[in-house]
């Protein structure tokens, strides 16, 4: 008869925290914030390049010397990435299928472009991370870096980075990726507070501003490295190639 009795009685619907709509989001936010902290830390680490070859290589070596720590961080990051990506994609499709017939005309009043492109900026980040690991960590794309060593016999991360960015194509990939990341965070940062329930009418605007600030700082903080290399501000040390 009437449409009301078709669905199961509401009292039956049960859900666990993780499988609930809100729970999934909370996990997105938790994993996202972990990755965010990594990104910030990584940026600070990378910026040591401006201090010099010795400093950066020492830092890289120092990390290698505490394998338990690095591996735990790596483990957490991998888990975060997997969850974040997996649920990011799942949420995306769920959301897409929540409106099987789309509007013919659809306007946006206040949803930001950043918020509406999360899956694409996220996807961009993901592709980038894969490339980035192959590039600098596993040194697959440019095997020639593997033989770089500094005068103390350490892996010469400093030279590797500079060599990499001297290639305009590679730098471009980085710029695009960094834009993706930053733009992801323009929405991600304020969104995180909303998801954790820490937002209200008074803080809303402030968090939006925070999102932009973080994005800009990250974008500048990271891209200043390839930019400096391209502008020849940081150069390869004597004797490398």
């Amino acid at each position: 008869m009437s449409t009301v009795q078709v669905k199961p009685a509401p009292s039956q619907a049960k859900v666990t925290f993780i499988s609930s709509s809100i729970g999934k989001k909370v996990f997105q936010a938790i994993t996202g914030s972990f990755m965010f902290f990594f990104v910030v830390g990584h940026m600070l680490g990378n910026l040591q390049i401006f201090i010099g070859q010795d400093q950066l290589n020492t830092y890289a070596q120092a990390l290698k010397d505490v394998p338990y720590l690095t591996w735990s961080v790596r483990f957490v990051m991998i888990v975060c990435l997997v969850i974040h990506v997996w649920w990011g994609i799942q949420l995306y499709f769920e959301n897409w299928f929540s409106r099987p017939i789309r509007y013919v005309v659809s306007k946006t009043v206040q949803a930001s472009l950043s918020s509406r492109t999360m899956i694409f900026t996220g996807g961009g980040i993901f592709l980038y991370v894969v490339y980035h690991l192959l590039h600098y960590t596993f040194i697959v794309t440019n095997p020639q870096y593997a033989g770089l060593h500094d005068s103390l016999g350490r892996h010469d991360v400093y030279s590797m980075v500079i060599l990499g960015f001297q290639n305009g194509w590679i730098s471009t990939v980085y710029f695009v990726a960094l834009f993706s990341l930053s733009y992801h965070l323009v929405h991600a940062i304020p969104s995180l507070f909303q998801t954790f329930g820490l937002n209200n009418d008074k803080t809303k605007f402030k968090f939006d501003v925070l999102g932009w600030l973080v994005a800009i700082v990250l974008f500048v903080g990271y891209s200043i490295i390839p930019a400096a290399v391209l502008l020849n501000i940081i150069k390869l040390p004597e004797g490398v190639l």
């Binding site: 009437s2 449409t3 009301v4 009795q5 009685a9 009292s11």
Partner: peptide, 13 residues
């Protein structure tokens, strides 16, 4: 009461 099954609701009727 609808949720508890004590009222059967017929909207658009």
């Amino acid at each position: 009461q609808i949720g508890l099954g004590k009222v059967q609701m017929f909207p658009r009727t």
